[in-house]
Nucleic acid binder design. Sequence first.
DNA 1: CGCGAAGGCTTCATGCGTGAAGTCATGCGT
DNA 2: ACGCATGACTTCACGCATGAAGCCTTCGCG
Lengths: 173, 173
Amino acid sequence: MAITATPEPGGDASDQTPWLTPDEKDAWTGLVSLVLLLPGRLEAPLQQAAGLTLFEYLTLSHMSEAPERRLRMSELAYLANGSLSRLSNVVKRFEQRGWVERFPDPVDGRYTIAALTDTGYGVVVAAAPTHVRSVRQFVLDPLSAADQRALTRIAAKLRVRPSDLSQGMTGPQ
Amino acid sequence: MAITATPEPGGDASDQTPWLTPDEKDAWTGLVSLVLLLPGRLEAPLQQAAGLTLFEYLTLSHMSEAPERRLRMSELAYLANGSLSRLSNVVKRFEQRGWVERFPDPVDGRYTIAALTDTGYGVVVAAAPTHVRSVRQFVLDPLSAADQRALTRIAAKLRVRPSDLSQGMTGPQ
DNA sequence: CGCGAAGGCTTCATGCGTGAAGTCATGCGT
DNA sequence: ACGCATGACTTCACGCATGAAGCCTTCGCG
């Protein structure tokens, strides 16, 4: 793959960086493929059927499941795995299409609440089957039950809270 | 997560779509987090240290390991997990910085060869330690040896057969 | 009270990715 | 030979993500 497995000519013996072993390289290469290739594959059906990004779908979808179909922007951003800035842009577009309404949280005016309209709810319901189908096709069907459990476990270990990012840390396990 | 686990009100019993079970939902949710969150995490160090995207790094890196440090564009695109269009844009920028040279393949003028210059090679060598360090920190260190093997296996199963999705490519592996 | 800090959110400029259309070289059929 | 089909790129217009800077609300403290 890269300058990942062998000390290249040019980096001499004083090099402190531990290079990757073949096994590590395989794991990393595999993960890179997933991370670079899967989004496009999973978005294509959603794009075609509903004109939605994966991130947009997740956004609408989380709102549709929340109590009263509404969430604070910051929580929604976390749930949908995106930055607040990204979410803000997305929700603005949704608002212009009449899928979502935004207003300050009556409890604490610093928060903004995003609420799914009936129209917006209709959009998710219409898009959901397409989404589920592609998830099955590209992710679940190729994996055994053991694989799925392993995937869940691995993802949990690799999922890092933004708050933990600042400090270089030695995570558990 | 989404309209993924329970038939929502509004979709009645005539619904043909099989919804996701809780275990499937967990696996899917985990994978989504990886796929949406990891790229940013892994790119930040590269960006800061070398001004490179993950995809850009992979591009340079693959060239640096190829015989004579040169590859056909189409093969490079496959290796780096990107579209030909995306690669073309990236390589154009590299060419403007003097990191890469492009010329038609003497063997078959339809192909274009991208060749890494010495300057370009220096860039990869300088960026590699940063990259390896973040791969360890965010991916390898949190995982046990068994996890790493599982990840390799899962990624191999999910790697999409290009034949199913129309994509020009060269040899496998 | 009032001032300033903290935090949630929005905005804006910049740059990148995408997909469709265009270019160019080669091979194939007639 | 000619012309069309094929395949490998390249370009362009559009839209989105990013991150820094700014806005607004609340809270803490004097």
